[in-house]
Amino acid sequence: MRLLISATFFLLAGWFLMYSGAGALPQFERQHVDPASIAPVPRRAILRDPAKVTIGGIEQRCSACHAIFPSTQDAPAARLQHTEIVLEHGLNDRCDNCHDKGDHDGFVLYGGRVVGFDDVQLLCAKCHGPTFRDWERGVHGKTLGSWVVGSDAQRRLLCTECHDPHHPAFTPYVPLPGPHTLRQHATERHADEHDHEAYNPLRHWRTEAEDAPEEGAH
């Protein structure tokens, strides 16, 4: 009996020494996210006063051309230039609602006052009053640099640094990867039930078209 026990223990010891290293954990999947996609920069780079564009290799102000060539009265429909711009700004469907017909370096406010690119928020405020007031208080839009009100490090982004003025609605983004936590899919689902909407009060009043892909067995 004792011999049997000794043999068992020595065999066990041998097994431990030979086969039982710490081993390794399973390889965890690494997601790669392009650092450029998470850079804290404004969505758009904008022109600042004095605004210049490069035409034919030469930097010029807008008024350089517009002083020579007359603009159509029926923009954007009858444009010959600036045809790459697609104007989708809701009810605002005329270029001269924003761009001053007299001074093409600036934008026109109510009463004919012209402002430059550095005060573009006043232009947007013409129609978007509540949003502008929210922006003034820091509630709408983005502030880079600091949360301390009035600090030099604060950089309030102007409207056009997020919104394309000719097409202000944000275009869809490609979402970055979702969570891949440990053993997220350790077990299989056995039925493809989607009773997410079981307790959703709206579910009775959605249209059938909306419902169809999501309706489960409930």
């Binding site: 026990i5 066990l12 039982s20 954990l25 936590t181 440990l182």
Partner: peptide
């Protein structure tokens, strides 16, 4: 003897867990 063997197997498994961390278990966040 059987109990001792099982205990030692458990001790060995814990040693692995001590080295590698609790990811050797099935627990998650």
């Amino acid at each position: 003897t059987v109990l001792t063997v099982i205990s030692l197997l458990g001790l060995n498994a814990y040693a692995k867990q001590f080295v590698l961390g609790l990811a050797t278990t099935g627990m998650t966040d």
